[in-house]
């Protein structure tokens, strides 16, 4: 299934939404309108948005803490994200999750605060869909830093051993918290580690959304056809800091400037314009719509009530269980 123009426009729109929404939320964090700190991903939007392109809505996605790309990509609305960040009663979790975005009915699965704890869970989701013969694929997106977690190897092992419909996606944005990844990651590339477990891998330019889409499409089709897991490593770059308020300074200006030239949104737009199916007027109209949507979402979140404290003990345990 090749990437057609309409799909590319949709992916482009998602990337721009992510960029604008992250900027807006960052301002709200700084202004202390929302209680958490933020982790944003300016410059790496193509990965999260692109990998969701080939996914079915019932495919499982385990995402990352950075930015909104895969969450917008998999079908979360800006208002849903904002209400979670505000901790309002109108959020999907009724104020319980904050940054740990979750939307089960579009396949967005838990984001553990202890990054890497999802490796086993994604194995379980993939095992489950295999045992149920549901045809669902699980995508586990993680950063190059999280590849250091204990369950990474065993997850590759289990996925390979049981030939699970599981696609591991490493979003290598070159910074692990407050340092360049080579301070804490021994190898230039994460992907070859998959080879040790008999899992095929590809290393792909993560700032070209068409390449991201195509590579994911190949891996997902393979998985859906019962050919087992794959690992994709997308090379990209985090132009912002680790969190809002991080003083930064550890990323060389020239490095940031060089990656600005490879901005995935600019590249996508230039390509669409060059190919003649996107015009400046389209751009203007789209941005105005997105900004209006975001402002409406902010207003909705602002005006939403906080949860009733009496709900705090609800749903600690699932009631009933199997009564059949």
């Amino acid at each position: 299934m090749a990437l057609d123009n309409d799909t590319l426009k949709e992916l482009y729109r998602n990337m721009v939404t992510v960029r604008l929404l992250e900027k807006r939320v960052e301002r709200l964090v700084t202004a202390a309108r929302i209680p958490c700190s933020g982790h944003f991903g300016t410059g790496q939007e193509a990965v999260g948005v692109g990998i969701c392109g080939p996914l079915r809505s019932d495919d499982y996605l385990f995402g990352t803490h950075r930015g909104f790309a895969e969450y917008i990509g998999k079908g979360m609305a800006p208002a849903e994200i904002l209400c979670e960040y505000y901790g309002k009663a109108t959020s999907l979790s009724r104020g319980r999750l904050g940054q740990h975005l979750l939307k089960v009915d579009v396949g967005i699965m838990p984001l553990p605060s202890s990054l890497g704890s999802e490796f086993g869970m994604s194995v379980g989701a993939a095992l489950s869909s295999k045992l149920r013969r549901s045809g669902q694929v699980t995508v586990n997106l993680f950063g190059e830093g999280t590849a250091g977690q204990a369950d990474f190897g065993p997850a590759l092992e289990m996925a390979s051993l049981w030939q699970l419909p599981l696609v591991f996606v490493c979003n290598n944005n070159q910074y692990v918290e407050l340092a360049h990844y080579r301070n804490v990651v021994a190898t230039e590339d994460i992907a070859p580690r998959a080879g040790g477990y008999g899992v095929p891998y590809e290393i792909v330019d993560g700032n070209d959304i068409t390449l991201v889409y195509d590579a994911t499409e190949r891996a997902v089709s393979r998985a859906r056809n019962g050919e087992g897991p794959m690992l994709l490593e997308f090379k990209t770059y985090r132009r912002g800091t680790h969190y809002t308020g991080d003083p930064g300074g550890y990323q060389p200006r020239e490095e940031i400037a060089a990656w600005e030239k490879k901005d995935p949104i600019d590249r996508c737009r230039d390509r669409m314009m060059a190919e003649g199916f996107w015009a400046e007027t389209d751009e203007q109209a789209m941005r105005e719509t997105i900004e209006a949507e975001i402002e409406a979402a902010v207003q909705f979140a602002e005006e939403s009530p906080y949860p009733d404290p009496a709900t705090v003990t609800e749903n600690i345990y699932a009631q009933g269980g199997d009564k059949s």
Partner: peptide
């Protein structure tokens, strides 16, 4: 972890 993932997805 695999048990948790499987339990969340219907098993």
């Amino acid at each position: 972890g695999a048990a948790v993932g499987a339990a969340m997805t219907g098993l």
